[in-house]
């Protein structure tokens, strides 16, 4: 169907899902197809998914908690875009699904990756770095005192 490999698609889907809606709205505005060129296969729907985790990353599996998730699917021409995002923002899911469909188009892929996805990824990395700095600044070192005997 398309020449794009799964890790590349995962990369842009991650960027689309983790970015705030306003950033998608402004970044995608010049690229969005007219509304009558989009067939919505699945309008945004919000539901719950159970997030599972492993203690220590490798221990027994347990249910960490439920996360609300919004999904949407759209066909733009022959390409079908899907989006699954955390939270209940329907417009965010719509934008992410549209972007997923457009990014599968080889003719526009490079332009969108450089013009939309790369800035989103930079912003995600910057947010992450500043959160890590804030956490590191409040770090407390614990020392074990050895009692003299």
């Amino acid at each position: 169907m398309s020449t794009i490999d799964i890790p590349t698609r995962q990369r842009w889907m991650r960027a689309l899902a983790l970015s705030p809606r306003a950033a998608l709205e402004s970044g995608l505005a010049p690229h969005l197809p007219p509304p009558d060129a989009c067939r919505w296969l699945r309008r945004p729907q919000t539901g719950l998914v159970m997030v599972e985790a492993r203690s220590g990353g490798s221990g027994a599996r347990f249910n960490l908690g439920e996360l609300s998730v919004t999904r949407a699917s759209v066909a733009v021409g022959e390409r079908v875009g899907h989006a699954w995002i955390g939270g209940g923002d329907a417009r965010h899911a719509e934008l992410a699904a549209l972007a997923d469909a457009l990014l599968q188009d080889d003719a526009r892929h490079a332009e969108l990756m450089a013009g939309v996805i790369a800035p989103l990824e930079d912003a995600i990395a910057a947010r992450r770095a500043s959160a890590s700095r804030a956490a590191a600044a409040s770090r407390v070192e614990f020392f074990t005192m050895v009692r003299g005997e």
């Binding site: 067939r39 919505w40 296969l41 699945r42 066909a75 022959e78």
Partner: peptide, 11 residues
């Protein structure tokens, strides 16, 4: 292959 939509109001 062409996916089509389903119910307009699924629920």
């Amino acid at each position: 292959m062409m996916l089509t939509a389903a119910f307009a109001q699924p629920v």
